[in-house]
Design a protein around this nucleic acid. Sequence first.
DNA 1: AGCAATTGAGTTGTACACAACTAGTATGCG
DNA 2: CGCATACTAGTTGTGTACAACTCAATTGCT
Lengths: 151, 151
Amino acid sequence: MGVLPDDLACFAVHVAARELDNAYRPALRELGLTYPQYMTMLVLWERDPQTVKELGAALRFDSGTLSPLLKRLEAAGFVTRERSTTDERSVLVRLTTRGRKLEERGKDLVAKVFRTFHYSDRDAEHLHEEMRKLVAALDDRAATFGRGAGG
Amino acid sequence: MGVLPDDLACFAVHVAARELDNAYRPALRELGLTYPQYMTMLVLWERDPQTVKELGAALRFDSGTLSPLLKRLEAAGFVTRERSTTDERSVLVRLTTRGRKLEERGKDLVAKVFRTFHYSDRDAEHLHEEMRKLVAALDDRAATFGRGAGG
DNA sequence: AGCAATTGAGTTGTACACAACTAGTATGCG
DNA sequence: CGCATACTAGTTGTGTACAACTCAATTGCT
C-alpha cells in the first residue's frame, strides 16, 4: 500500500506555506522586504524598540535566523541595532525614520493581498483556527518529547 | 489599529510548517534524510524511475531546488541519475538497492510520527482538507495573476 | 566576594527555495 | 531541410532555517 506526498496533510502544509510566500512576494518586493523581514517589521511597528530575544519569541525565529535577517534590515536602513545599557547581553532593535515611514505603505498590504485569495472572513478564521490547533499540538509534543528523541 | 504576526493566518501556516519540520527531523535523521529528501523518496518508492520534471511536478519543487537535492541523495547512495536515451533533455532518477531497501524502515515513519501529535483521523482529514482548499485558492490566483504583478 | 551555570547574541556549516540565467536538446513550421 | 522556438536540467546568487558552537555578560549559590 503506497503513500505519496499528496496523501499527507503535513506535505500539504508545506506546499501551502510556500505558495503563500509566492503570493506575497511581488507585493513585498515593492517594499524591498522578504516575507520574514516583513513579519519582523510588523512586530516593530507595534512595539519599538524590541530586543532580539523578544523578536525571536514573537516570530519563533532563533538567533541563527534572526541575526543575519536583522543585519540585512539594518543594511537596508530600516532598523538600527544597539547594545542595551541595562543588560549588555541584549541588543535593542529600533526602527529608523525610514523604517517607521514604511508602515504607511506596508500596513494594509496583508489585507490587500489576502483579498485576492477570494477567501471569506469565515474561511480565513477557519484556516487560522486549524493552524492554531496544529501548532498547539506540536508545541505540546515538543514540550513532552523535548527537542530530542523522536517517537 | 495594529496587526501582529500572531493575528495572521498566513503566519500561522508558516509556523506550522516549520514546527512540523522540527517534529519529523529526529526520526528522519535516523534514516539520513531531510524532510524534502524524504518526500522525494516517497515518490520514488511508488514510481521508479522518475524524471526530474516528474519529481518536480509531484513535489512542487523547481529545478533549482531539486537538482542539488538529488545530487545529495546520489552522494548518499540512495539514487542514481542518468540521461534518458529517448529524450536526452530528461534525466532519469532511479533508486539504488540501498534506496529501495530504505523503504522498509521509512514507509511507516509518517504514521508513526503523526501518531505522536495526538491528532485523530478526523482531525487530520480536516487539516488536510483545509490545506487543499488554501492551495487550490492560491493556484487559482497564480493562474489568474501569473507569477508577475502582485495585486 | 567568588565561581559555576545560565543567558543573549552571533558565527559557521548544511540544506532548502526561488529568481534569473545558461546550455543542450527536441519540436514545429515554412 | 533549416532555423526559430520551446523545453529540460543545471548553475549562481540571495535569503531563510536549524544545529552546534563561541563568547561575553549576568545570575545564582555558597
